[in-house]
Amino acid sequence: MTTGLWELLFKGLWVTVQLTVFSAALAGVIAFAAGLARLSRFWIVRFVAGAYVEFFRGTSALVLMFWLFFALPLLGWQLAALWAGTLALGLSYGAYGSEVVRGAIRAVPVAQREAAIALSFTPWQRMRLVILPQAVPEMVPPFCNLLIELLKGTALASILGIGELAFGAQLVRLATGQSAEVYGIILAMYFVVAFVITRGMRLLERRAKASVGRVPRPDLTSAKRVPPGAVDTGVGTVGGGSR
């Protein structure tokens, strides 16, 4: 492979990273908004949030991406491929993430809420000062898993012609015909990014736990992975297995 072709792959990697960051930011916002909405006092808010989550967890991220890219323009809006990709990934993973947020908040002991009420905090103060600081550290490991799933999901954007890593690989493959080398290399690149994410999140978890005076789990890598498709994205469970 020539340097030019390597350059193509690294450009693709850069787009992949951008796509991951943008979609993750969007997904994060949606996850907190929808997760909190599902715990709302008003049934209509809970219902709307629940419908959103169930719908986007039910459909396929790739189909959603296609729909945003091909179908939406015909209904009147035109989205650039990159934004269609970001939006599709953000909406899908936001739905999965909201389950993490909801699960972690519900895992905070009821006594904590009661204590906050006893101190006459407003509901928003309760959430911000008491509940969230305890819930957020619990969210970090499942969020880490989701982030890696999201990274893997960015490869779907190549089908829309977005010039990310998998797309770059396709171009290089067409130029050289060395399928095994090209795809081997980019699989390794994805793996390295996933590894960096895992390390970074582990650091974050340690920080977050220290901030509430807890000892971090000795090994985050042994934390069970739950894929976005699996229903149970709650905190600390792996489906029905570990009870």
């Binding site: 998998a166 690989a169 399928s179 795809y183």
Partner: peptide, 17 residues
């Protein structure tokens, strides 16, 4: 390795290799 890399790329790998 397999779990941390995209299925789509794995499919391409299998399909072409």
């Amino acid at each position: 390795f397999v779990r941390n890399t995209p299925l789509l790329v794995q499919l391409f790998f299998l399909f072409y290799v």
